[in-house]
Nucleic acid binder design. Structure first.
Lengths: 269, 269
DNA sequence: GGACCTGTTCCACACACCGTAACGCCGTTT
DNA sequence: AAACGGCGTTACGGTGTGTGGAACAGGTCC
């Protein structure tokens, strides 16, 4: 059997009739987004995705025609191209919460002198879509566009806590909670209690749950149904954050309350 | 001959052996970025790109598996998905000029009370990669990620003017200057004089050259070789901009001078 | 110089993808 | 109501296209 039939993606169910080569091309493309390195070689990709070098080469040549990837003739290595950027920008341009939250992130970062971030949810994950870093020496900086699970870290827990009970149970039922660090909550009962506490407090906090040495406070921006549209966080190095947390949380809630109001949310009661 | 061989893309030369279906899939994907509407239907795409409905449907189904596009089951219409966003964010995260210029755009917008934008060049075009809009009623707002030619409008001319003489001639030799409005400069000799004036002044200005009713001033951010890394503009409605232009240009140059210095540029002389 | 990487090209065969055409499914129209 | 036109989706069989393995070419490193 030369071609590996079926296989498909890890995520979704059936999706009708698909073209194997297109699906593989999409896989190659997404690999660029998921890998930390800026450039990739043909062999590197072929090995990572279990494809033949020839196939990867042909795919890259095809994607190159539309500018989705670029080839550096000197190094013979490939990277994401202008087309990919335009694709992402076209998406971002349609997420209006980002435009609205932008100035607030700047304010928040200035007032706390820490990094302010904005995340949105994509199914069982979330991604950072914006960040504003303060002008000081030691800061936190996140990678935009990388998917993170919903159970580890401040922003993630803030999302999870404000979903419906059904959605939370659905998330939990999917499988075991993978630890990202030694501090990640992996026990489901513990996580349920934590989420209840977050709803009570109105914000989540995390010390090294997702990334060692990083700490954050995070709160959701709610729409007029009370559903979390996005999450704002303030994060910094764990050492100095321990004493700043309360102050940051205050500033954070002030910002997210204002943003939620702009998105049509009205406080209960 | 059922399949239309060759054809390829309008832009590039040969690119070795390519896979027709992947190239077409990329074409479909890019169509989402280029079209102003958020969602597209199968027939709509098929007609726009001259493909059969069946082919478009199969391509969309394949892209959907990797999350590059999403299907709204209610309307049966497709839009860009989370994967596309992650792709773009992965790119943007690697453009550090954007991170550095961000705060300056905020400052600039506040000081002028107009829209501040940031563009980067992609070959014979440029795209807006960021914008900050002021909090007032009537404002300019640009579309991020859409490609614009280099001869029409403030930001475009600012790029062109600061390229090398060889690059400028190469651009001009490519074909006639397509007018985007009645004010677009279409005569090459006139454009050359205009570019010289821009280099002299240090900034470009435009009234309705790219978009009717829109005006702007724009200046480049230069790296340590004096090459334009990016262009910053301040833009607004043409009517009120006529009297604001000089003041905006002052603020603009202050910002771009600071940014160029940060990128390693040192003023000549 | 040769061993060992890369990325790229060649080739003939199998089979995956192509377009045509028919299928449901909604809205609106007659 | 029933017929229409629009949509997105599926079926099908033939052909031409993409497949993987292996050979090629151009590097760098011992």
């Amino acid at each position: 059997m030369p071609t590996k039939s079926s296989g498909a993606a890890p995520g979704r169910e059936h999706a009708g009739q698909v073209i194997a080569s297109v699906e593989r091309a999409a896989h190659v493309l997404m690999h660029f987004a998921e890998t930390p390195s800026d450039t990739l070689g043909v062999t590197e990709i072929a090995e990572a995705l279990g494809m033949s070098k020839a196939a990867v080469h042909r795919i890259l040549a095809s994607l190159r025609v539309r500018g989705l990837v670029e080839l550096d003739p000197a190094t013979r290595r490939y990277s994401l191209g202008a087309g990919a950027m335009r694709l992402g920008l076209a998406c971002l341009d349609r997420i209006d919460v980002r435009r609205i939250a932008g100035p607030e992130l700047v304010t928040l970062s200035r007032r706390t002198d820490e990094t302010a971030t904005l995340s949105i949810r994509t199914g069982r994950h979330r991604v950072y879509v914006d960040q504003v870093t303060p002008a000081r020496e030691v800061i936190m900086s996140v990678s935009l566009g990388v998917a993170h699970p919903l159970h580890a870290g401040g922003s993630s827990k803030a999302f999870l806590a404000f979903l419906t009970g059904e959605e939370i149970e659905d998330y939990l039922s999917y499988g075991p909670l993978e630890p990202l660090t030694g501090n990640t909550i992996v026990d489901k009962a513990t996580l349920r209690r934590e989420l209840a506490a977050i709803r009570e407090a109105g914000y989540a906090q995390s010390f090294s749950e997702r990334m060692p040495g990083a700490a954050s406070v995070a709160a959701p921006i709610l729409d007029h149904h009370g559903r979390p549209l996005a999450v704002v966080s303030v994060s910094g190095p764990a050492e100095r954050f321990r004493e700043e947390a309360r102050h940051c949380a205050e500033m954070l809630l002030e910002s997210t309350t204002r943003l939620s109001a702009q998105m049509g949310w009205t406080a209960p009661g």
